[in-house]
Simulated assay, not measured.
Amino acid sequence: MVIQKLDKLQTMFAEMERALIAYSGGIDSTLVAKIARDVLGDRALAVTAISPSLLPEDLEEARIQAAEIGIHHQEIQTHEMENPNYTSNPVNRCYFCKSELHDTLKPLALQWGYPYIVDGVNADDLRDYRPGIQAAKERGVRSPLAEVGVSKAEVRELSKILSLSGWNKPAQPCLSSRFPYGEEITVNKLQRVGRAEVYLRKLGWQNLRVRSEKDTARIELPPEQIKEFVLTTDLPQLVKTFQEFGFIYVTLDLEGYRSGKLNQVLTPEAIGQS
């Protein structure tokens, strides 16, 4: 079944002839970039948008993966932090982020001779509240994984089949997703969260989030890892380090990490008004 979907993806890119991939370095866009490179060769281009919401460590990983794939890779700057519709962090914040991204990419794609811009949206993403998907659709961006019906689990399966080194790495959405809707996003806050997550990764905890609410950091880990974390981590040192980053309070979410948790506060009314 998954091989049939791979065949469809390969056929889709062959029909495009030239494609520009909105490439974050995450597992989804990396898979898309890999398939595009295999089919189109030098007629595929991966482009990564650099902004304060992208960790420098994740940017470096994106560069390494692009080199492993062998795809041409460009980097551009986006300026969503200059848009108050974004920094005020409304429930449809992602709409303004993706609008900025694709309004930047589209003229470049035309200038460089790429008739198609594609992204890494998968079929499971369509079942969550993702206002950025609408912004991409409005600008003619295609989502090959979603079009073929590739789920997140199948993304990992295909990535493993294609020998991508990051096939099992955790999802890593932009740092702006760490803040509750309505709390203003600033560069300093993004950097504070980023440093905290990198610190925990270096301690060996990979699948995690540091949610930020005003001066409080809330650490989310998979539920099955919480006990080990408490027993093996030097908690006073962790608190001291987080306070050096700029937090005052440090907490641990006892429910644990769950994808899409930020959206659990949304009501149909709030989504409809966005």
Rank of each mutant, 00 (worst) to 15 (best):
R43K: 15
G140I: 10
L145K: 05
C174I: 05
L54C: 10
G246A: 08
L31R: 03
L20R: 08
V230A: 12
L175Q: 04
P223N: 09
N122R: 01
I161N: 03
L101Y: 10
R201S: 04
A109R: 06
P144K: 02
I133V: 15
S212W: 01
S29P: 12
G70H: 07
R93I: 02
D215N: 15
Q237V: 12
S51H: 08
I27D: 01
V39G: 08
E68Q: 14
Q243D: 05
L164S: 02
Q134C: 00
E60Q: 14
V155S: 04
R178E: 04
M12G: 03
L262R: 10
F245A: 03
L105N: 05
E138G: 00
T30P: 05
S212D: 13
E68L: 14
L238T: 05
R63L: 06
G246R: 11
I27W: 00
E220L: 10
A146I: 09
Y23D: 03
L208W: 05
A123Y: 09
T267A: 07
N188T: 15
A33G: 15
L231Y: 12
A217C: 09
V265C: 08
S274F: 10
K202G: 08
L105D: 00
Y23R: 00
E220V: 04
L54D: 02
D125K: 04
R142Y: 10
T241E: 14
R93M: 06
L54G: 01
L203F: 10
F179R: 01
T267S: 13
A196S: 09
Q10M: 15
V198K: 09
L231W: 13
L208K: 06
L262M: 10
I3H: 15
L45K: 11
V150W: 00
P180A: 12
V2C: 08
L175I: 08
P90E: 02
L238K: 08
Q206C: 10
L231V: 09
F247I: 00
Q74N: 13
M16Y: 14
G41N: 06
L31E: 01
E154N: 03
D253N: 12
T233W: 06
I185D: 08
S163A: 14
T78E: 02
V141Q: 03
S176D: 01
L45F: 11
K240V: 11
S274W: 09
K34S: 07
I35M: 06
L221F: 07
L108N: 02
A171T: 09
D234I: 07
T78D: 01
V2S: 07
A22V: 05
L145G: 08
M16N: 04
S274R: 09
A153V: 13
R156G: 02
L145C: 08
Q111V: 04
P84V: 06
S165P: 06
N168F: 07
A19K: 02
L221P: 02
H102N: 13
A270I: 08
E220W: 09
L126F: 04
F242T: 05
V210K: 06
N83S: 11
A146Y: 10
A19M: 04
E80F: 12
A136P: 00
N85L: 15
P173H: 03
H72A: 15
R130E: 07
R195F: 09
A36M: 04
V250M: 00
T11A: 15
L203V: 02
R211K: 13
A14I: 06
E57F: 10
S176V: 01
V2P: 00
K34W: 07
L108S: 04
V39N: 10
S177L: 05
T11H: 13
M12I: 10
K8S: 13
P90S: 07
R178F: 06
